[in-house]
Each structure stands twice: as C-alpha cells, then as structure tokens.
Amino acid sequence: MTGFITLFTLLSMSVVALFSLRQSNLTQSVVLFSGVGLGSVVLFFIFNAPDVALTEAVIGSGITAVVLLIGIRHMHKEPEIEEVMMENRRGIRRIAIALLVLLTLLLLGKTLLGALSVETSNAGQALLEHAMQAGAANAVTSVVTYFRGFDTLGEVAVLFLAATGVGLLLTVEKGEDAIYIEPNFILRIGSGFLFPLILLFGLYIIVHGHLSPGGGFQGGVVIAAAFLLLFLTRRRFGLSHKIVTILESGAGMAYVLLGLTGLWLMGLFLGNFLPHPAEKIGMLVSGGIIPIIYILIGIKVGSEISYVVEKLIKRSHDV
C-alpha cells in the first residue's frame, strides 16, 4: 500500500507545486505552496519518520506559510498589468528553461536509478544500539541532541542569526508600521480561550521531546503560533523585549555552558554527564541532559520565533 500512496502523493505534490508557481496572485501561490508541504508531511509519515512529519507540518508548511503571507501583506501592491504581462511575455524563454531542466532531470534520474543501491545501508544501527543504553526513548531525539549535538548547537545559532537579522532589518525609526488586520470579534474571544490550550500543547511537545515525537524546535514554534493568535486579534498586544531577550540569550548561553560542563567533567563537549541509566528510558526523567537540552532549545526557539513573528507583523522600533 505504501507504494501506491507514495506515488499518488508525489504526483499530486508536483501538480500543486506547478500550479503554485504559475499563480500570478502571490497569496494563492503561498497557500498552494503550503499544500505541497502538507503532502510531504503525509510522505514522511509513511516513511515511518513521525518526528520529521511533525517538524514539517509545524515548521515546513505551517510557520513558513505564515511568514510568507505576512510578507505579502506588507507588499500589498497588486501586480500591475505590465508586471504580469512582463512575466507572461517571457513564455518562450520559460519553455526553453523547462526543456533544459527536463533534460538535466532525465540525465540525473537515469544515472541515479541505475547506480543507487537498493538495500538501504543502515549505519544508524550502531547509533541505535548506543541509544538503547545511553540515549532516550525517542532515538531521533537522542541523535539530535546528544550524538550529533554539535549540529543542533549550530542549528540553534542559525535560527538565532535569522531572528537577529529579522530584528535588524525590520526596525523602523520610530513607532511601528503594522499590516492591517481585520478586527474579528469571534476570533478575538475564541483566541482568548485557545491561547492557554495551544501554549500547553507546545510545552507538552517540548517536555516530552525525548519520549514521543516532538522536541524543542517543534514545541517552540507551536508556542510562537499561540502568540501569533494574540498578535492577530489584539492590536495593542506586544511582547516585552526585555523578557524575550533574557529568555533567548539566557537559554542560548545556558546551552553552551551545558556543553562546556560536559567538556570540563567528561572531556567531551556536549557529553552526557548526568546519570542516564538504560532501565529508566521510558520515564519522564531519563536520558540525562537530553530533556534539559530540548527544554532550553524550546525556550529559545519559542521566544525567538514569537519575536520574529511580532517584528514581521509590526515592524516596531527597537534598538
């Protein structure tokens, strides 16, 4: 059955992607683009990767589509006729590009199909054994935070760079230049009730990151989605920059210090110096520093992406 579903989903994703690109109205093309993201969520689920499916759903097609839509709302200029004309007039050039791309695809596909070995070389087996004794229940989390923890530290730095970059770019001299949001009474009342629920859901994902699919990144973005709901419904609601900075810098510095204590105590940067016995793997308090790292990442990502979303909506002034 997986073969049929994969074939069907991939074909529909390609069709939706093509339509998303051919739209001249940007909002429609972004909505179709998040459809492609949802298609890949289905595929990741079929490929037995629930963690990646959750990440793609929340980050890949969720918050990315929101960021794009807010961006388009800032650039509310509908495409002038000549702009759309210019884009369509390049028809011949576009067909040439399409043929060129098709050619490279055929070449690439033929070589890859011929040469790629069918059985999947499974080097993760050694890591899985390691996870059995030393890691947490969710092997992907123990790989992300512990075995390949250095990648995740780099990744947190990348997200931190993007947030600081957005903060730098979207600052206006004074006041704010927010996008116009329709006041919607029903949503306003509903969001009052929903905000704590979504916040709780985000915290649940962070704290249970090492037991069930999820973790710091996915939970942090869910928390940011909760704050997005408040930004959309309450004009004067704003994050206090002091708290966001304290949370963001504090969590980041704590993460590096945690790594350094691993270096000082065990001689291995980001080493798991806390006790992580194998028999307690399924429990909440298990896996040594793994849950602590994911909670720190959750705090950092949560505050950072909420700050990014607020800056995108409001372009408020801050140093």
Partner: peptide
C-alpha cells in the same frame, strides 16, 4: 473539545476575511 472550538472559529474567520 479543542476541535469543537477551532474548526468553527477558523471557518468564521475565513468567511469574514473573504467578505471584507
């Protein structure tokens, strides 16, 4: 309970936005 709230809420927001 969560779905009972979000589903109608989101569609009312959708309807109002498209009306406006």
């Amino acid at each position: 309970a969560f779905i009972l709230i979000t589903n109608p809420l989101s569609s009312s927001a959708l309807a109002l936005a498209s009306y406006k």
